[in-house]
Write a protein that binds this DNA or RNA. Structure first.
Length: 498
RNA sequence: GCGGCCGUCGUCUAGCCUGGACUAGGACGUGGGCUUUCCGAGCCCGCAACCCGGGUUCAAAUCCCGGCGGCCGCACCA
């Protein structure tokens, strides 16, 4: 069994994630539900994102519409560039990427800019036929990866957003004016994006509806090196894999900027921030890399791209696309909307440039499960950092009897409002501990006979299995403090090697 | 979408080739009871499945066709 299968089996059997609409046989692939524990895990992950990136860096979070009008995507380029030219065999119905088919058959590269009819003509001129049945091929049409929706009774054309960042670009000027009025300005958003993938695969790794957490840093390109925040991380060990290299090497931001590998200090700083984020979630630094993309691999709007990838059983998994989008987005929205989105910075009117950190949330959660769902000779433990655990504290009576049960229930009822709590009184105490280990629950509170005499309970630590005795009246504060300390530990681990 | 393999309780699976003894068996899970009284103990009683549709047949989990889904490869991507 592969790690992927093991994780998926675990997730499915505990109801963490599972396929959407699964009682209907015809439900299309690429849609997944988060179950009770999955929602909590995701919420904790989002809290970590807010804490370690948003609040730490004083970013500003917004929440935009998922449905946006057509012209947004005319401006963004998605109507044109997010669509693949396809042709269908009139005989057997096979569908081909028209440009790829031509390249395959003739070794002539087909420029992206060509119109459908021009590509159709190439097919015809070269006498290209279906590779499956040698049938005649249809006119070239476009398969757009965006979901089209019609709005209102008049059916106005709109689309589900294929990335969350467009609302940030569209909203930029209003937020700029109502908040800091200053560059650089980091805006961010977490929410759903939608892509009509041809072939969704691998559960939550490749969905048609998925969560993105995106950060768009607006900056003045002339001042990208005048960036004070850079100082605190200038000696961090970035795991960079430059173009044409086959593995990552440790490079400090200072070196990377000096050598021109990273184009400026602002970008270097944000690359540190994002690498550090994963390290603080408990991912080993040696398993992380920032891989530089060449022009072939880059998205159509990017001029400098680094993909944050983490090693998994499925190979390197792309988690965060880090793109220097230049002034592409604001300029395009200015052209198409007719609105002026420029600002005055340092006495000069400019269109800000954008550096983006576009995180796949679902993928990140998979990664956590795969890296941290561990079995040794004795126990299976989901070794999440304590503050990410979906259940924070479990309360048990040592045995399910009279006064012990009553006291345990009272303690549980007191804790459940402040923490994600769990109560269980069945079977042996050891079994209950082990089940909590598997779900990553950091603390188990047990009410025993001594509790009835002196009002203390035991608190068991997930990783060490050791117990401390705590007055029940102090439980809330103690657990709170232990969870706080967990953030601190993650911090130490992240900074330890730099 | 194509090609290859595959689809049975919540999970993992037996059964399928060679149609009938399958009211579909087991393990884990789960609900209840007894026992136990700090690290996946034991016993008893329950719950729970043949992906969907059509066909062949006296009879389909089993054979055939189609759809949907999964895995791998191609292509695409957070």
């Amino acid at each position: 069994m592969t790690s992927y299968e093991r994780v998926l089996r675990f997730a499915l059997s505990k109801g963490i994630v599972f396929p959407s609409c699964e009682i209907y046989g015809e439900a299309p692939a690429g849609f997944w539900e988060y179950g009770p524990l999955g929602v909590r895990l995701r919420n904790r992950f989002i809290e970590a994102w807010r804490r370690e990136l948003v609040r730490r860096d004083e970013m500003i979070e917004i929440d935009g519409s998922q449905i946006m009008t057509k012209r947004v995507f005319l401006a963004s380029g998605h109507l044109e560039s997010f669509a693949d030219p396809i042709t269908k065999c009139r005989g057997c119905g096979s569908i081909f990427r028209a440009d790829k088919l031509i390249e395959e058959k003739t070794n002539i590269s087909v420029p992206e800019r060509l119109s459908d009819s021009e590509i159709s003509m190439m097919l015809e001129d070269r006498g290209i036929r279906c590779t499956n049945c040698n049938g005649e091929l249809s006119e070239v049409t476009r398969f757009n990866m965006m979901f089209k929706v019609s709005v209102g009774p008049s059916g106005d054309e709109a689309y589900l957003r294929p990335e969350t960042c467009q609302s940030i670009f569209v909203d930029f000027l209003r937020i700029y004016k109502t908040t800091t009025n200053k560059l650089p300005l980091a805006l961010c958003q977490i929410g759903k994006s939608f892509r009509n993938e041809i072939s969704p695969r691998q559960s939550i790794l490749r969905q048609r509806e998925f969560y993105q957490a995106e950060i768009e840093v607006f900056f003045n390109p002339k001042k990208a090196d005048e960036f004070d925040k850079f100082e605190q991380y200038k000696d961090y060990a970035l795991m960079l894999q430059p173009l044409n290299e086959d593995k990552a090497v440790k490079v400090t931001p200072s070196e990377a900027v000096a050598s021109g590998l990273i184009s400026n200090r602002l970008i270097a700083y944000y690359l540190v921030l994002i690498q550090r984020f994963y390290e603080r979630l408990g991912i080993n630094r040696e398993s992380v890399r920032l891989r530089q993309l060449d022009s072939e691999e880059r998205a159509f709007y990017a001029r400098e791209s680094w993909d944050l990838e983490v090693k998994t059983s499925l190979g390197w998994l792309e988690l965060v696309a880090c793109n220097n989008r230049g002034d592409y987005d604001l300029t395009r929205h200015m052209e198409v909307s007719g609105q002026d989105l420029s600002v005055v910075d340092d006495g000069e009117r400019i269109v800000p440039h954008v550096f983006e950190l576009s995180m796949g949330v679902d993928r990140s959660l998979y990664l956590l499960l795969e890296h941290l769902y561990l079995t040794d000779s004795k126990r299976t433990i989901l070794r999440l950092p304590y503050h990410l655990a979906p259940i924070q504290v479990a309360v048990f009576p040592l045995v399910d009897k009279g006064e012990l049960t009553k006291l345990a229930e009272r303690i549980y009822n007191d804790l459940k409002v402040d923490f994600d709590s769990f109560y269980d009184s069945r079977e042996s105490i050891g079994r209950r501990y082990r089940k909590m280990d598997e779900l990553g629950t950091p603390f188990c509170v047990t009410v025993d006979h001594q509790s009835l005499e002196d009002g203390t309970v035991t608190v068991r630590d997930r990783d060490t299995m050791s117990q401390i005795r705590v007055p029940a009246s102090e439980l809330k504060q103690r657990i709170q403090r232990l969870l706080e300390e967990s953030w601190g530990r993650a911090c130490d681990r992240g900074l330890g090697e730099s």
